[in-house]
Design a protein around this nucleic acid. Structure first.
Lengths: 121, 121
DNA sequence: CTGATAGGTTTCTGTTGGAAACCATGTATC
DNA sequence: GATACATGGTTTCCAACAGAAACCTATCAG
Protein backbone atom coordinates (compact mmCIF):
# COMPACT_ATOMS: atom_id res chain seq x y z
CA UNK A 1 0.00 0.00 0.00
CA UNK A 2 2.25 2.72 -1.21
CA UNK A 3 1.20 6.29 -0.74
CA UNK A 4 0.43 7.92 -4.04
CA UNK A 5 2.33 11.01 -2.87
CA UNK A 6 6.01 11.60 -2.37
CA UNK A 7 6.95 14.54 -0.21
CA UNK A 8 10.40 14.65 -1.76
CA UNK A 9 8.99 15.54 -5.16
CA UNK A 10 8.93 19.21 -5.94
CA UNK A 11 5.42 19.42 -7.36
CA UNK A 12 3.82 17.08 -4.87
CA UNK A 13 0.89 18.74 -3.10
CA UNK A 14 2.14 17.40 0.22
CA UNK A 15 4.90 19.97 -0.12
CA UNK A 16 2.31 22.73 0.11
CA UNK A 17 0.86 21.17 3.22
CA UNK A 18 4.25 20.74 4.82
CA UNK A 19 5.04 24.30 3.87
CA UNK A 20 2.02 25.52 5.80
CA UNK A 21 2.89 23.39 8.81
CA UNK A 22 6.53 24.41 8.72
CA UNK A 23 5.70 27.82 10.12
CA UNK A 24 6.54 28.85 13.64
CA UNK A 25 3.42 30.97 14.08
CA UNK A 26 1.06 28.38 12.60
CA UNK A 27 2.39 25.76 14.99
CA UNK A 28 2.02 28.05 17.98
CA UNK A 29 -1.53 28.98 17.00
CA UNK A 30 -2.57 25.37 16.49
CA UNK A 31 -1.08 24.45 19.84
CA UNK A 32 -2.75 27.38 21.54
CA UNK A 33 -6.18 26.34 20.24
CA UNK A 34 -5.93 22.87 21.76
CA UNK A 35 -8.01 23.74 24.82
CA UNK A 36 -10.87 25.36 22.94
CA UNK A 37 -11.80 28.46 20.94
CA UNK A 38 -9.81 31.64 21.44
CA UNK A 39 -10.48 35.20 20.30
CA UNK A 40 -8.22 37.20 18.01
CA UNK A 41 -6.78 39.60 20.53
CA UNK A 42 -6.50 36.85 23.11
CA UNK A 43 -4.28 34.91 20.72
CA UNK A 44 -2.29 38.02 20.04
CA UNK A 45 -1.60 38.54 23.71
CA UNK A 46 -0.90 34.88 24.45
CA UNK A 47 1.50 34.34 21.60
CA UNK A 48 4.01 36.97 22.59
CA UNK A 49 5.78 38.66 19.72
CA UNK A 50 3.35 37.97 16.89
CA UNK A 51 2.19 41.01 14.96
CA UNK A 52 -1.42 41.65 14.06
CA UNK A 53 -0.66 41.35 10.38
CA UNK A 54 1.05 38.01 10.66
CA UNK A 55 -1.57 36.67 13.06
CA UNK A 56 -4.32 37.70 10.67
CA UNK A 57 -2.54 36.21 7.66
CA UNK A 58 -1.69 32.97 9.41
CA UNK A 59 -5.24 32.51 10.69
CA UNK A 60 -6.56 33.02 7.17
CA UNK A 61 -4.22 30.41 5.74
CA UNK A 62 -5.08 27.91 8.46
CA UNK A 63 -8.78 28.53 7.87
CA UNK A 64 -8.34 28.08 4.14
CA UNK A 65 -6.61 24.77 4.77
CA UNK A 66 -9.54 23.61 6.88
CA UNK A 67 -7.50 23.35 10.05
CA UNK A 68 -9.30 26.03 12.02
CA UNK A 69 -12.73 27.65 11.87
CA UNK A 70 -13.68 31.28 12.30
CA UNK A 71 -16.89 32.37 13.98
CA UNK A 72 -18.06 35.96 14.27
CA UNK A 73 -20.32 37.03 17.14
CA UNK A 74 -22.33 40.25 16.63
CA UNK A 75 -21.44 41.60 20.03
CA UNK A 76 -20.17 45.09 20.56
CA UNK A 77 -17.41 45.36 19.70
CA UNK A 78 -17.62 42.40 17.38
CA UNK A 79 -16.02 39.22 18.70
CA UNK A 80 -14.27 36.65 16.52
CA UNK A 81 -13.49 33.20 17.80
CA UNK A 82 -11.06 30.76 16.24
CA UNK A 83 -11.27 27.04 16.93
CA UNK A 84 -9.73 23.82 15.69
CA UNK A 85 -11.75 21.84 13.17
CA UNK A 86 -11.93 18.06 13.25
CA UNK A 87 -9.09 17.98 10.75
CA UNK A 88 -7.07 20.40 12.83
CA UNK A 89 -7.60 18.27 15.88
CA UNK A 90 -5.92 15.32 14.18
CA UNK A 91 -2.75 17.40 14.06
CA UNK A 92 -2.52 18.67 17.60
CA UNK A 93 -0.73 15.69 19.06
CA UNK A 94 2.03 15.93 16.50
CA UNK A 95 2.33 19.68 16.89
CA UNK A 96 2.42 19.34 20.66
CA UNK A 97 5.13 16.72 20.30
CA UNK A 98 7.29 19.21 18.39
CA UNK A 99 6.74 21.95 20.95
CA UNK A 100 7.40 19.50 23.76
CA UNK A 101 10.60 18.33 22.10
CA UNK A 102 11.76 21.92 21.84
CA UNK A 103 11.14 22.51 25.53
CA UNK A 104 12.71 19.22 26.60
CA UNK A 105 15.85 19.37 24.43
CA UNK A 106 16.55 23.04 24.48
CA UNK A 107 19.49 22.76 26.84
CA UNK A 108 21.16 20.22 24.58
CA UNK A 109 20.65 22.46 21.57
CA UNK A 110 22.04 25.50 23.35
CA UNK A 111 25.07 23.50 24.46
CA UNK A 112 25.64 22.28 20.91
CA UNK A 113 25.46 25.83 19.60
CA UNK A 114 27.94 27.01 22.19
CA UNK A 115 30.38 24.22 21.34
CA UNK A 116 30.00 24.84 17.61
CA UNK A 117 30.58 28.57 17.93
CA UNK A 118 33.66 28.19 20.14
CA UNK A 119 35.33 25.82 17.69
CA UNK A 120 34.20 27.16 14.36
CA UNK A 121 34.92 30.77 15.33
CA UNK B 1 7.02 19.25 37.57
CA UNK B 2 6.47 22.33 35.55
CA UNK B 3 8.79 23.04 32.68
CA UNK B 4 10.90 26.07 33.38
CA UNK B 5 10.30 27.20 29.80
CA UNK B 6 7.23 28.65 28.15
CA UNK B 7 7.17 28.51 24.39
CA UNK B 8 4.58 31.27 24.28
CA UNK B 9 7.02 33.77 25.73
CA UNK B 10 8.84 35.87 23.19
CA UNK B 11 12.32 35.61 24.64
CA UNK B 12 12.12 31.95 25.61
CA UNK B 13 14.95 29.98 24.01
CA UNK B 14 12.49 27.27 23.01
CA UNK B 15 11.27 29.75 20.44
CA UNK B 16 14.63 29.63 18.73
CA UNK B 17 14.49 25.86 18.65
CA UNK B 18 10.95 25.84 17.31
CA UNK B 19 12.02 28.40 14.76
CA UNK B 20 14.69 26.07 13.47
CA UNK B 21 12.30 23.13 13.34
CA UNK B 22 9.59 25.19 11.68
CA UNK B 23 11.42 25.11 8.38
CA UNK B 24 10.28 23.03 5.45
CA UNK B 25 13.79 22.24 4.27
CA UNK B 26 15.10 21.36 7.72
CA UNK B 27 12.25 18.91 8.23
CA UNK B 28 12.81 17.29 4.85
CA UNK B 29 16.55 16.97 5.50
CA UNK B 30 16.06 15.44 8.94
CA UNK B 31 13.54 13.00 7.50
CA UNK B 32 15.84 12.13 4.63
CA UNK B 33 18.70 11.29 7.01
CA UNK B 34 16.63 8.73 8.91
CA UNK B 35 18.07 5.76 7.05
CA UNK B 36 21.71 6.72 7.47
CA UNK B 37 24.33 9.19 6.27
CA UNK B 38 23.83 10.95 2.96
CA UNK B 39 26.19 13.05 0.88
CA UNK B 40 25.63 16.68 -0.04
CA UNK B 41 24.79 16.25 -3.68
CA UNK B 42 22.76 13.17 -2.93
CA UNK B 43 20.57 15.23 -0.61
CA UNK B 44 20.32 17.90 -3.25
CA UNK B 45 19.06 15.43 -5.80
CA UNK B 46 16.70 13.64 -3.43
CA UNK B 47 15.06 16.75 -2.04
CA UNK B 48 13.76 18.11 -5.30
CA UNK B 49 13.63 21.86 -5.55
CA UNK B 50 16.15 22.81 -2.87
CA UNK B 51 18.92 25.12 -4.02
CA UNK B 52 22.55 24.56 -3.16
CA UNK B 53 22.67 27.73 -1.13
CA UNK B 54 19.68 26.87 1.02
CA UNK B 55 20.82 23.27 1.44
CA UNK B 56 24.24 24.45 2.54
CA UNK B 57 22.79 27.03 4.94
CA UNK B 58 20.24 24.65 6.41
CA UNK B 59 22.81 21.92 6.95
CA UNK B 60 25.05 24.40 8.75
CA UNK B 61 22.25 25.46 11.07
CA UNK B 62 21.26 21.89 11.82
CA UNK B 63 24.89 21.05 12.53
CA UNK B 64 25.23 24.04 14.80
CA UNK B 65 22.16 22.92 16.72
CA UNK B 66 23.72 19.50 17.22
CA UNK B 67 21.04 17.70 15.23
CA UNK B 68 23.28 16.45 12.44
CA UNK B 69 27.00 15.78 12.05
CA UNK B 70 29.26 16.53 9.14
CA UNK B 71 32.11 14.27 8.12
CA UNK B 72 34.60 15.00 5.38
CA UNK B 73 36.33 12.17 3.54
CA UNK B 74 39.59 13.07 1.75
CA UNK B 75 38.60 11.24 -1.39
CA UNK B 76 38.89 12.81 -4.76
CA UNK B 77 36.81 14.78 -5.22
CA UNK B 78 36.22 15.34 -1.53
CA UNK B 79 33.16 13.63 -0.10
CA UNK B 80 31.04 15.07 2.69
CA UNK B 81 28.56 12.96 4.58
CA UNK B 82 25.81 14.24 6.79
CA UNK B 83 24.22 12.07 9.45
CA UNK B 84 21.82 12.39 12.34
CA UNK B 85 23.35 12.74 15.78
CA UNK B 86 21.87 11.07 18.84
CA UNK B 87 19.99 14.25 19.56
CA UNK B 88 18.73 14.44 15.99
CA UNK B 89 17.55 10.86 16.18
CA UNK B 90 15.25 11.72 19.09
CA UNK B 91 13.41 14.02 16.69
CA UNK B 92 12.89 11.79 13.71
CA UNK B 93 9.69 10.15 14.87
CA UNK B 94 8.02 13.50 15.40
CA UNK B 95 9.26 14.85 12.10
CA UNK B 96 8.13 11.73 10.32
CA UNK B 97 4.72 12.09 11.98
CA UNK B 98 4.38 15.56 10.47
CA UNK B 99 5.40 14.38 7.01
CA UNK B 100 3.09 11.41 7.31
CA UNK B 101 0.20 13.63 8.38
CA UNK B 102 0.79 15.80 5.34
CA UNK B 103 0.68 12.81 3.03
CA UNK B 104 -2.33 11.26 4.72
CA UNK B 105 -4.48 14.39 5.01
CA UNK B 106 -3.57 16.19 1.87
CA UNK B 107 -6.81 15.40 0.10
CA UNK B 108 -8.82 16.89 2.97
CA UNK B 109 -6.67 20.03 2.90
CA UNK B 110 -7.03 20.43 -0.85
CA UNK B 111 -10.80 19.98 -0.58
CA UNK B 112 -10.95 22.59 2.19
CA UNK B 113 -8.96 25.04 0.06
CA UNK B 114 -11.26 24.48 -2.88
CA UNK B 115 -14.36 25.05 -0.75
CA UNK B 116 -12.85 28.16 0.84
CA UNK B 117 -11.87 29.67 -2.48
CA UNK B 118 -15.24 29.03 -4.10
CA UNK B 119 -17.13 30.76 -1.30
CA UNK B 120 -14.76 33.51 -0.34
CA UNK B 121 -14.07 34.50 -3.94
C1' DC C 1 42.38 22.15 -22.84
C1' DT C 2 37.61 20.67 -22.46
C1' DG C 3 34.47 18.39 -19.57
C1' DA C 4 32.86 16.08 -15.53
C1' DT C 5 32.26 15.55 -10.40
C1' DA C 6 32.05 17.13 -5.54
C1' DG C 7 30.86 20.76 -2.41
C1' DG C 8 30.29 24.85 -1.89
C1' DT C 9 30.01 30.62 -2.21
C1' DT C 10 28.55 34.84 -4.54
C1' DT C 11 25.42 37.79 -6.81
C1' DC C 12 21.10 39.43 -7.96
C1' DT C 13 16.30 39.97 -7.39
C1' DG C 14 11.55 39.12 -5.80
C1' DT C 15 8.92 37.75 -1.79
C1' DT C 16 8.30 37.83 2.92
C1' DG C 17 8.63 39.31 7.96
C1' DG C 18 7.99 42.52 11.49
C1' DA C 19 7.01 47.33 13.46
C1' DA C 20 4.07 50.82 13.44
C1' DA C 21 0.33 53.48 11.85
C1' DC C 22 -4.18 53.62 10.40
C1' DC C 23 -9.26 52.34 10.05
C1' DA C 24 -14.33 51.19 11.24
C1' DT C 25 -17.44 50.55 14.77
C1' DG C 26 -19.53 51.21 19.06
C1' DT C 27 -19.55 52.33 24.06
C1' DA C 28 -18.28 54.95 28.02
C1' DT C 29 -16.31 59.42 29.89
C1' DC C 30 -15.96 64.27 30.46
C1' DG D 1 -19.29 67.06 20.92
C1' DA D 2 -14.29 65.70 21.74
C1' DT D 3 -11.55 61.99 24.04
C1' DA D 4 -10.39 57.62 25.05
C1' DC D 5 -10.69 52.65 24.81
C1' DA D 6 -11.98 48.07 23.03
C1' DT D 7 -12.46 44.84 19.05
C1' DG D 8 -10.45 42.91 14.66
C1' DG D 9 -8.38 43.97 11.20
C1' DT D 10 -5.61 46.43 6.77
C1' DT D 11 -1.93 49.34 5.00
C1' DT D 12 2.62 51.08 4.71
C1' DC D 13 7.37 50.87 4.99
C1' DC D 14 11.88 48.80 5.32
C1' DA D 15 15.10 45.13 6.32
C1' DA D 16 15.79 40.28 6.02
C1' DC D 17 15.43 36.16 3.56
C1' DA D 18 14.50 32.78 -0.35
C1' DG D 19 15.53 31.02 -4.72
C1' DA D 20 17.85 30.99 -9.42
C1' DA D 21 21.85 31.15 -11.67
C1' DA D 22 26.57 31.91 -12.12
C1' DC D 23 30.93 31.26 -10.32
C1' DC D 24 34.86 28.91 -7.64
C1' DT D 25 38.45 25.25 -6.21
C1' DA D 26 40.20 20.96 -6.73
C1' DT D 27 41.14 16.64 -9.17
C1' DC D 28 40.83 13.27 -12.66
C1' DA D 29 39.53 11.44 -17.62
C1' DG D 30 39.94 11.84 -22.34
Amino acid sequence: MDQPYDIYQERCPTRMVLDRLADKWALLILDRLRDGPVRFNHLRRDIAGISQKVLSQTLKKLERDGLISRQVFPTVPVTVEYALTGLGRTLTDTVAALAHWAEANMDAVLAAQKAYDSIGR
